[in-house]
Design a protein around this nucleic acid. Sequence first.
DNA 1: AATGCGATTCTCT
DNA 2: GAGAATCGCATTT
Length: 204
Amino acid sequence: MEKINREFYERETIQVAKDLLGKLIVKKVENETLVAKIVEVEAYKGLIDKAAHSYGGKITERNKIMYGPAGYSYVYMIYGMYYCMNVVTSVPNNPEAILIRALEPLSGLETMSKFRYGKYYNELKSREIINLTSGPGKLCKAFNITKNDNGVDLCGDNFFIAEPVTKESFNIVESKRINIDYAEEAKDFLWRFYIEGNKYISKK
DNA sequence: AATGCGATTCTCT
DNA sequence: GAGAATCGCATTT
């Protein structure tokens, strides 16, 4: 399992978004390593994107990590109860990032189950198994991603993205992003990407 | 299968 | 004080 280097994240955001599909997100927690495949993402390109927190170059305490170097995590709280995780891309002062929207769990399932539902994996109903990581808030809960993970360098050793050992081929579906109705013309941009046919896709 | 709604608190104006 | 890059459950089709 080979860790992805910073140059990967410094490229054009749409390209990075598509290339993140099929990669592995790895997080070490306590005595366990959680691993899951990235199956759905959305790109946010701040300067021109009304759906982005950084639209028009707006800087706030919350979004300032988007203005730094690529390869860092941007984690924020939403709806008072969930976290969402992004990967910062491009170059400093071009505030772009990629929202991780869905994962396919691969290892550390017991620990994910504990974080997500507070019970053992073998107690989960089939519906709960699918819902472990099939959405941006869900996957943060399963991976125990919180505000403590905001601004972490994903080129470090405890939380990173890696190339899978064996690559499989898949088709990429492009669609409109989810829940950005306020974003005027940007709501129609086809900046959501997912692996065709994967069970863990958050919507349709 | 689709639609509707309440939960809950941080962030920004 | 308003609204949010969401989720889970209830209700209806």
